[in-house]
């Protein structure tokens, strides 16, 4: 077992974990952060995307021990109590989700995309989300949502 000290969605946790514990399993099973789902086992689908120290990572391809000392934000901590982050709002407004399983990862990836490119073109959005698979939407409304979010002032919730 290894000891880790992480801050997840603003709360600090100290835990003993098996080294083989994936970050996503730690989030889901130890912390109950089940808002972050698991979609594959090859780092392909991006459903499990979270932010580690402010940048997007696939939490199924990070060991919990690697995140030791890190700050993690999941979809559950993206916006404070009851509010929606502009990206969450834009996904809702633009019907950028259907079943919603890819949505947490897609939103976390899209937020990170705007961090590095605040005003992306449609093609840049498509390229920037290449690591996240959606089987429902055909991506068009996701692209629309990200563009809409980019056009929204960041305001209180980033």
């Amino acid at each position: 077992m290894a000891r880790i000290d992480v801050t997840v969605d603003g709360v600090r946790y100290t835990d003993e974990v098996e080294p083989r514990t994936l970050l996503v399993h730690y989030l889901r099973e130890r912390l109950g952060k089940v808002g972050t789902p698991i979609g594959c086992d090859t780092s392909s689908c991006g459903a499990c995307t979270v932010h580690l120290d402010g940048i997007s990572v696939k939490s199924c391809t990070v060991l919990a021990v690697q995140a030791d000392g890190g700050q993690i934000t999941t979809i559950e901590g993206l916006a404070p109590n009851g509010e929606l982050h502009r990206m969450q709002q834009a996904f809702h407004d633009n019907h950028a989700l259907q079943c919603g399983y890819c949505t947490p990862g897609m939103i976390m990836a899209a937020v990170d995309l705007l961090r590095t490119n605040p005003d992306p073109t449609n093609q840049e959005i498509r390229d920037g989300l290449e690591g996240n698979l959606c089987r429902c939407t055909g991506y068009q409304n996701i692209v629309r949502a990200v563009r809409a979010a980019a056009a929204t002032p960041t305001g209180v919730t980033g």
Binding site: G128, G131, N132
Partner: peptide, 9 residues
């Protein structure tokens, strides 16, 4: 190479 999240790690 791969995708942005993978390139971060």
């Amino acid at each position: 190479v791969a995708d942005p999240a993978v390139r971060h790690r």
